[in-house]
């Protein structure tokens, strides 16, 4: 039996009849057509699917679409405003915080939450908070640098 769910993603309302077992990430990718949010695992380890739901960074593979009924969601596609990159996006670019780019949307969405909670994190804090996001390309060095750099530039604004 299908259920109707409605949610706002990046300011746009999406309404679809879905199977109750549909994962939120599949709603975002397949129904809303926002493919920047990725699926890298099936055990909630990799964080490639990280989005912001009602102000919290969550793994969208770990929620059902029906649980997000009525939610306000931001995905990677909604982070840049008025054609201007978010400082964290700038920082990943500037510090070479990505290679293949597959983990990147999730990394950036997690980084946004890390810096929202703690605008001036230490290296150890950043590394600890990245525990839910895996990257196979960068060895994390430049991801950590990028988050440190974003913290600096955001503090200056």
């Amino acid at each position: 039996m299908k259920t109707k769910v409605t949610m706002t993603i990046n300011g746009v309302s999406y309404s679809h009849e879905v199977e109750p077992r549909m994962l939120l990430v599949h709603f975002i990718r397949e129904l809303a057509g926002l493919t920047g949010t990725h699926v890298g695992c099936d055990t909630s380890q990799c964080g490639a699917c990280t989005i912001n739901l009602n102000g919290l960074a969550v793994k969208s593979c770990t929620l059902l679409a029906v649980q997000a009924d009525g939610a306000q969601i931001t995905t990677i596609e909604g982070l840049a405003k008025d054609g201007k990159l978010h400082p964290i996006q700038e920082a990943f670019w500037e510090k070479h915080g990505l290679q293949c780019g597959f983990c990147t949307p999730g990394m950036i969405m997690s980084a946004a939450q890390i810096l929202q909670r703690n605008p001036n994190p230490s290296e150890a804090e950043i590394r600890h908070e990245l525990e839910g996001n895996l990257c196979r390309c960068t060895g994390y060095h430049n991801i950590v640098k990028a988050i440190q750099y974003a913290a600096e530039t955001m503090a200056k604004r």
Partner: peptide, 21 residues
């Protein structure tokens, strides 16, 4: 030099196989 492929990746506009419909 900063990478020219990055703008699409950091904005979620990459084009991976599973994105194709």
């Amino acid at each position: 030099i900063k990478r020219r492929e990055d703008p699409r990746f950091i904005t979620g506009k990459g084009n991976y196989t599973d994105d194709l419909k």
